[in-house]
Design a protein around this nucleic acid. Structure first.
Lengths: 116, 116
DNA sequence: AACAATCGTTTCGGAGCCGTATCATTTCAG
DNA sequence: CTGAAATGATACGGCTCCGAAACGATTGTT
């Protein structure tokens, strides 16, 4: 069964999801941060700073700063690449996995409430 | 046919949508701004600063500043309530309607690309 | 070994957004 | 008519993020 979303449903889903995020969290992640987080959790490793910057079409400091922030939140962690010590590998954390899971649950819940 | 979104599909949709937003726009809207915009475009008028603040559980200056920003972008506009001149009515614009339409189209497009 | 290239980080000035408190304007109540 | 209440905007100090440039560390090249 394909996902057949109508424009009005798409907007309502977008609204309800963001609405819930805004109401719940004091500190919500930016679009860039969410994209970085989900890229790390959905795509196959390894993930480097340079690779993420290129993929998202942003500068490297943007990734560095996002890792600082989300590292502080324990949603992601850095690790040196032992094979090439210039690289930093971005890895998942338990707390990050739970956060991503919560995003998914919220999205699923809001999609179920959509009118036909 | 109900919208039956699995968690993995929800995450991919969330990722792909944000990814596209980040790649395309230099200046992307925050979660709060998107919520305000969609609230005005989806829910029935009138929309006041106070009403939006209460609905989103944020302070009034948050709404005022968001209206400044999105007003500059011409996505929303202010108008004095002639019945009660203390009120400011938040209204849609042509440019804002096109932006919202683009959001919907992007969401629909990404949802169609989801794996079964 | 010496130099260039790569990688991630840091620095810098500038801009946006935050919450709290305060303000001007308008309306309502006595 | 006068004071209280309501509404939205503004001032303030603080925090985060931005892009560009410069930096240290590491690796590859010759």
């Amino acid at each position: 069964m394909a996902i057949d979303l109508r424009p009005s449903q798409a907007l309502k889903l977008l609204h309800d999801f963001n609405y819930e995020m805004v109401r719940d969290d004091d500190r919500d992640l930016s679009a860039r941060q969410i994209t970085i987080l989900l890229t790390v959790y959905l795509e196959t490793p390894p993930h480097t700073v340079r690779g993420l910057a290129a993929k998202l079409n942003v500068t490297k400091p943007v990734i560095t700063r996002a890792l600082d922030t989300m590292g502080r939140m324990e949603l992601l962690q850095r690790r040196r690449d032992l094979a090439d010590r210039r690289n930093v590998l971005v890895q998942r954390t338990v707390k990050g996995a739970l956060y991503v899971e919560r995003l998914a649950d919220l999205m699923v819940a809001k999609s179920r409430e959509l009118p036909l």
